[in-house]
């Protein structure tokens, strides 16, 4: 067993992650997308909404790396800026889940009296199929990226809270928690210092998959016309606009689709790797 070796736990964890082939592949794929999103103003300096009708429907070439669309807009610019929007949506949903999922999960898991109320609310929210509730919320609030983020948070926070709750419930009964209580530590101190740090592993795994779902759902919603409004480029609405011309100019839907697939694939591989290393109970056999 490697766990008996006297190395620092952080280093050891990193070493195991770096030896995990899927994790490394996923991290590499996701880093590319992340870099594209961060460097968007540098690598795609052209305006992604600039129309140039005489350049319309140009297939991918040296001058137009990803080709152009029905308005002659550069798909390279549009896909890179779309990456930024996807990454920001994913990050925002993950951040909201990290904060509120942890908060509600910890409250429900630790305070038995709150548990019942919070879990019944989450039961009801989880009874809705995720994409349908997200569609319902964005349909009501109107199409915009911030509403998509809000909808995804409402849909996924109950699920994240469940995961945090189930580890909190187990750790709450551990001896070291009893010991801390016997030493006179208050509820908040116990939660913050003893319980939450030890229930982070499943949460981190969940958040990496959640990032993937969020990017995918955002694209689906904007494909349906419920995300950011054109001309703002999102991978979903580029494909929705390109659908009409999919025979004439198939690259308009092919390229953003590949970008979306590689992002989701990267995050899924990343999540699998994190799960294998951080949370071996849930392990899918390698």
């Amino acid at each position: 067993m490697t766990s008996a070796e006297p190395t620092a736990p952080g280093t050891q964890l990193l070493g195991r992650l770096l030896r995990h082939r899927q994790f490394v592949t996923g991290a590499a794929l996701f880093s590319i997308v992340l870099l594209a999103a961060i460097l968007a103003p540098v690598i795609a300096p052209g305006d992604p909404t600039r129309i140039a009708m005489r350049l319309k429907f140009l297939p991918p070439s040296r001058d137009h790396l990803f080709g152009t669309d029905n308005f002659g807009r550069s798909l390279w610019s549009r896909v890179i800026w779309g990456a930024q929007l996807s990454v920001m949506t994913g990050l925002a949903v993950v951040a909201l889940n990290a904060v509120f999922g942890t908060l509600f999960g910890a409250l429900a898991g630790y305070f038995k009296r709150l548990d019942n109320v919070l879990m019944r609310i989450s039961d009801a929210l989880m009874a809705f199929p995720a994409i349908l509730l997200a569609i319902g919320i964005t349909a009501v609030l109107g199409p915009s990226t911030s509403d998509v983020i809000l909808a995804l948070a409402v849909v996924y926070v109950p699920r994240t809270a469940r995961i945090v709750r189930s580890s909190v419930i187990v750790i709450r009964e551990m001896e070291y928690v009893q010991a801390a209580r016997a030493c006179g530590a208050g509820d908040w101190r116990i939660l913050r210092r003893h319980i939450l740090p030890n229930s982070m592993a499943p949460l981190i795994v969940q958040l990496s998959f959640l990032f993937a779902y969020s990017v995918l759902t955002e694209a689906t919603l904007s494909f349906l016309g419920l995300g950011a409004v054109p001309p703002t480029p999102t991978w979903g609405n580029i494909m929705a606009e390109g659908r009409q011309y999919m025979v004439q100019a198939p690259w308009i839907i092919a390229i953003p689709g590949v970008a979306l697939m590689l992002t989701v694939l990267g995050l899924n591989l990343l999540g699998d790797g994190l799960r294998d290393v951080l949370d071996p109970r849930l392990r899918i056999q390698p």
Binding site: A212, T220, M239, V247, A254, G257, M261, V264, L265, N268
Partner: peptide, 18 residues
């Protein structure tokens, strides 16, 4: 299976139509 869970289904649908 990894590809299966990562391919956006609406995109796959469009490719199949083409």
């Amino acid at each position: 299976a990894m590809f299966g869970i990562s391919v956006p289904s609406f995109w796959l649908a469009l490719l199949m139509i083409i």
